[in-house]
């Protein structure tokens, strides 16, 4: 089984990063998150196991932490409301008067902690996603790495997979992610003098 072999091999590099995915729901079998410095090592392992490269792309997670915080706050507020209502109902059922109900509700609401806002300056991140697959047996492995948005740098893998050359150039075009060691990181799809990166979330048409 390719999957087991590659799991064992990748576990050496990043033991806690492996996550098996369900093909019917996600489309991949293995989802691996590694740090930027581990990318070359992980890709070499995939190369040794006979995988072919499907694609490289990026995802800009601008505002991810803020959004996550907003979501968490909203969830906590809802939880507090629910808890307050439940407490009030309990008091009402027990025959308590309106004031007692309100007091109980307030108490219950205060009991739920609202998550604190992320401490500034927090680092915004971009993600680089590598898709690998195998000719002999279906085994799509998704390799992910996160880089800081202010200085997005990932080592190139174009010396291992020459096909990655264009994919990395394209990702550089769209996201401005620098692939350190890439032989020719000039715009591929964008005009040759392009100094913008259209898939960044703060790029507006």
């Amino acid at each position: 089984m390719k999957l087991n072999a590659i799991k064992q091999a990748l576990a050496v590099i990043a033991p806690e990063a492996l996550a098996e995915a369900e093909h019917a729901k996600k489309g991949a079998l293995l989802d691996v998150t590694v740090s930027a410095t581990q990318v070359v090592e992980a890709v070499s392992v995939l190369d040794k196991e006979g995988f072919f490269i499907e694609a490289i792309t990026g995802v800009d997670w601008l505002g991810e932490k803020e959004n996550a915080h907003k979501d968490a706050v909203a969830a906590a507020k809802k939880k507090a409301q629910d808890a307050g209502k439940a407490a009030a109902k309990k008091v009402a059922d027990a025959g308590g008067d309106e004031e007692a109900q309100k007091a109980a509700q307030k108490e219950a609401e205060a009991g739920v902690a609202i998550p604190a806002a992320p401490v500034e300056p927090f680092s915004e991140e971009m993600e680089v996603v590598y898709d690998f697959n195998n000719f002999a047996e279906f085994c799509r492995v998704v390799l992910r790495t996160r880089v800081p948005r202010s200085n997005p740098e990932v080592p190139t893998i174009s010396h291992i997979y020459p096909g990655a050359n264009w994919h990395e150039r394209e990702t550089h075009d769209f996201f401005g992610i620098k692939f350190v060691g890439h032989p020719y990181l000039a715009p591929l799809l964008l005009p040759e003098d392009a100094d913008f990166h259209p898939l960044k979330k703060d790029f507006h048409v």
């Binding site: 499907e54 694609a55 792309t57 995802v59 800009d60 898709d131 096909g163 050359n165 264009w166 898939l199």
Partner: peptide, 26 residues
Amino acid sequence: GVRVVSDGSNTPYRLKLRSPTFSNLS
């Protein structure tokens, strides 16, 4: 291959199109 990243809204957060000839031509 199409990779979509959804943030739960009614528009895709990210849409990656992996076209075969791009790799074939490379």
